[in-house]
Amino acid sequence: MELRVSKAKVSEYPAWLIFHTVAVFAFLYLPIAVLILYSFNGEGVGGFPPHHLTLDWYRTLFADGPIWDAVLNSLYVALAAVAIALGFGVPAALALERAQFPGKTIFRRLVLLPLILPGIITGLSLLMLFNILGVKLSLLTIVLGHGTALISVATTEVFAGLQKLDRAQEEASLDLGANYWQTFWRVTVPNLKLPIIGAALLIFTLSMDEIAVSFFLIGRDNTLPLEIWGRLRRGITPEINAVSTIIFLFSLVAIVFWYRLRVRGEAGAEAGAEIVTALEGDLA
């Protein structure tokens, strides 16, 4: 039934349009599909079409110590980045939505600037800063880099959530005897639960993928993307395909989860979503 309906609809469009659509999607997703496929290929990276499907590469991967160190490093960095970005981003969003202060427009631009700035610039400038300050590069510098670069994501998401929040609710809380602090924790934060969780997921995912900023701030310990990049210089191994496949699935799950939260929290915040989509492209 449904199939027939959609077929009828499709046939209304000219053939070139369908071809164009298919081509675009192929361009976007075929490489990923190939990567996933070759992670199961018995002959490694050579040979087409792949045969001897095998899980050997995953077995190798799970026995590979340095990769798992890198995964742990990345998790540590991502979690710390979430904490920093939310810690600064939520108050920034509140200030932007609520407070009137001189220079607010400039403040808004400045907070959102890291969304637009290429990672190379953020990374390079932070590197120079740490150099001047004499801070030794380590995972901590990466954490600071990711944290600051992603504050804007937290701000954008939470700001969008705040705009949807009915101010009368906060007034009702004050009216019922709760002071401003109690109102914030009892009414504002519970109502911002979805944007905050969404922002956290997104920041986590973006930090896990991040390579440009990390590249400049890396110390002795590698994050996962840098570990992969390092290994690629010695040639592609199917093990890399395997780890990429896992990362891909992981990101996919996180993004789907985030998107569903978004939909449940009802439409809204399109602007935030657009910026974030652009950002994803930038960091990928």
């Binding site: 009368a168 609710q169 009702a172 009216d175 709760a178 009414v187």
Partner: peptide, 30 residues
């Protein structure tokens, strides 16, 4: 929050994350 005055808002402004009971209890809890 220090005034012995309470308000019924135009669109009620009930707290969506709380149940009816918790909404009513809000002032007393605080």
């Amino acid at each position: 929050y220090r005034r012995r005055v309470n308000t019924v808002f135009q669109h009620y402004a009930l707290f969506p994350h709380l149940t009816v009971e918790e909404n009513v209890a809000y002032g007393l809890r605080v």
